[in-house]
Nucleic acid binder design. Sequence first.
DNA 1: ACACTAGTTGCAACTGGATCGCAACTGGAG
DNA 2: CTCCAGTTGCGATCCAGTTGCAACTAGTGT
Lengths: 152, 152
Amino acid sequence: MPFPQTETPGRLQAELMSRGLRMTRQRRTILQVVETASTHLDASQILRKARKLDAGIDRVTVYRTLSLLKRHGLVDELDLMHLQGEKHFYERRPDRDHLHMACLRCGGIQEFESNLFERLKGQIQRECSFHIVVTRMEIGGYCSRCRTNEKN
Amino acid sequence: MPFPQTETPGRLQAELMSRGLRMTRQRRTILQVVETASTHLDASQILRKARKLDAGIDRVTVYRTLSLLKRHGLVDELDLMHLQGEKHFYERRPDRDHLHMACLRCGGIQEFESNLFERLKGQIQRECSFHIVVTRMEIGGYCSRCRTNEKN
DNA sequence: ACACTAGTTGCAACTGGATCGCAACTGGAG
DNA sequence: CTCCAGTTGCGATCCAGTTGCAACTAGTGT
């Protein structure tokens, strides 16, 4: 579940408006799709869902809005180990970083957060004096379900 | 330096042959390019370097050889936070995992390895009973050089 | 040394996600 | 209500990567 239910609805929209960006009908629609998504969506899935709410929306607008959100650090772009080809997936940036585990057999995606991850980031900031803006950690392997099934 | 000098030259080739794969003139050339690279190369850069050694090599062969190496876990595919657009970069898989830090200002890439990273992987294997095959961690931010320059 | 064949290559055509240029449209400040 | 910088839609275009297929060849067997 990339988009926990605890999140305030309309937060992305509020965030963009507070930065003085224009709120158009199309942007509102796309934000709504991204905010209410229950899985990781790629651009074409976002387009399809947005068109159900507002038939006239163009692909280009979706791309432009996503890159706007990315520039403002409101969404993260993933490729989930290229399990689905070259597609890029988007998720609302969470308060706390998490990593993605992609199963090479069933294609399922799990998420995980850990304070070791936070400590690792802290170590990097200190030892490399590198100021971290965004992190992306993706792991490919075999999930517990597939590992037990394999034994049958 | 993605390809430490300590590595045995010809190791990729030996590895592929030990798996019973055919060693063609083209593959030897591409392996040599990948093995001796001093930076992260994308497919078109690999093609260009390979053509300097063997003019007839086709881009399709480069793609096919890279995906072969990837399937056999001998190279890793990176996109370095998409700083260079949609390009994919390749590096020989190292003995010990490392992470990549991409500077959002100068575009420079640094590498880092840490036992916290190893511990994090251990935690995931244990707590999620997920069998890790490959990991990819990329961090976007600002490197120490750019941070000090910014103050000027 | 030679022949055989499964695996490999090169070429040309194609795919599909992403981008560009530009005219028309519009959110929201004044 | 006016105005215009910012935004949108459309068509054309780009470009990394893929596919189908005929020709070629590494490596095995004889």
